[in-house]
Design a protein around this nucleic acid. Structure first.
Lengths: 263, 263
DNA sequence: CAGTCGGTTCCATTATGTGGAACTGACTCT
DNA sequence: AGAGTCAGTTCCACATAATGGAACCGACTG
């Protein structure tokens, strides 16, 4: 019954198909032509064309001159609203700032969704080193500090379920490629109370993360401090770990208090 | 053919219906129950229920405990991307800040879409007077400074078309209620080069706005300075008008230069 | 002026969405 | 406790809307 989630990815019904098209356009960092979208999607020409037409008609996409598709204005509405209303983010924000001040590096707030971590907020490092992370983006759980921190606090059954759905992809030489390896890492993280990313997702990028867990709201996520390897050694991460963990616990408390009684 | 836009609002096909449901939830400032959404939508129970199920499945909505629907995390992705990528906003941002510094009041950037102005960006007044405006929100053209400024630069035919689609609603004692009255106001605005909102949308709120018009990108919009009537007299608005107009023209130029050659 | 390519339109087929009605379970009123 | 109401969910015959292969168009290209 419920297990009709077999096809977890890709489009559920018409809406899903349309959204997957939208996502292609939104995820690109430049306007896309019809044929480019066609290549990226797995839909036939006619179908894709109609989806695009509908998306444009709904204002989710706009079609500039030279026939390129770009994100439309109506997205702004959804965007801004969901962003500013996200209570979790609001509660966590001051803690992120504090952590950023203490470390000077980029701080992320993320939540667990299925087998991915979704970045909900970030405070950028002052130093200009670009990282791939973008708010709203998803990264796999098994190769990110946030992901591993979040997994490490999951109850047995849910952890098993999540691990079962994983498919591994080698991002770097250090990426975990088996459930067994990941499990060992998670056990360590659980004991310590924080998790590392030892260049497992991107080379030259390390991070330390701690989990935020609220059973009341079924909220599993975490915060992390991330930086380039040349500047951020593993020793440095160990030092920051306490602060990260403290901040994570402070957020957990705040969530309980601020979002709790008022429902 | 093109004029099949007759039913400009509400859902085009399945996607449109689903989006209108999404919009109801996103527009609300608190989580909604099924029955509340039912009341706000014009869809039958079964249909609505399925739409909600799909939206949840797609991650656009989440259903917290107590069965309330809230904006989902996936919106953040669409949100953030389209927001940060919006070139127009990026080009205009510094001018908005400057204008804000000169006036101390709230500055808005908006674009025309159909018969509405959509707020694309804003710089809040330092003083804490809440206004209804929210980024991504739409307001009618006929009772906002931005709307009237934008209309005033429209070519004859397109103006006529837009005016034809208007339906008036009395927001305040000063709201224009006829095309004729609105036209007179537009003529004045066109001559002056800027438009006012004399408490026509909200009582105690006045604004002055100037249009931004780029035929190359088919971009019609404007910027405005808005403030509470007790602080912002019509005389004051007249004084600011020049600065607003100057900023609008500067943005137009920047749009031309920065978005032009690079396609 | 053939040939290719990107974009758009058509239309018979069929999958999908539709929505009225019936079902469930929680809560209230008497 | 039992009747009544209400929110939420499920069901299913029906009709609409999506599907996608194929043909079409127009602009470049050689």
């Amino acid at each position: 019954m419920h297990s009709s989630l077999g096809t977890e990815n890709s489009g559920t019904g018409t809406l899903g198909k349309a959204l997957s098209v939208l996502e292609i356009v939104v995820s690109s960092d430049r306007p896309l032509r019809f044929i480019e979208i066609l290549a990226l999607s797995d839909q036939p020409r006619g179908t894709l064309h109609r989806h695009l037409a509908h998306l444009v008609e709904e204002g989710l996409l706009i079609q500039g001159r030279d026939l390129c598709y770009e994100p439309g204005l109506r997205l702004l509405k959804f965007a801004y609203r969901s962003w500013s209303k996200n209570q979790f983010r609001a509660v966590a924000a001051p803690h992120l700032s504090k952590l950023h001040e203490e470390t000077g590096e980029t701080v992320h707030l993320g939540v667990l969704r299925g087998t991915e971590i979704i970045y909900v907020d970030k405070v950028e490092s002052r130093q200009t080193v670009r990282m791939g992370s973008q708010i709203g983006n998803a990264s796999p759980v098994y190769c990110t500090g946030l992901g591993k921190a979040a997994l490490s606090v999951l109850p047995q059954d849910r952890l098993a379920e999540t691990l079962g759905k994983l498919t591994f992809h080698r991002f770097t030489a250090n990426t975990h490629l088996s459930v067994a390896a990941l499990k060992r890492d998670l056990d360590e993280a659980r004991l310590r109370g924080y998790a590392f990313d030892r260049e497992e997702h991107e080379t030259e990028i390390r991070c330390v993360a701690a989990a935020i867990h609220d059973t009341r709201f079924d909220l599993v996520g975490g915060i992390s401090v991330t930086g380039p390897a040349y500047r951020v050694t593993m020793e440095q991460l160990e030092i920051w770990a306490h602060a990260v963990r403290r901040a994570a616990m402070a957020i957990s408390e705040d969530v309980e208090v601020r979002l709790g009684p008022g429902r």
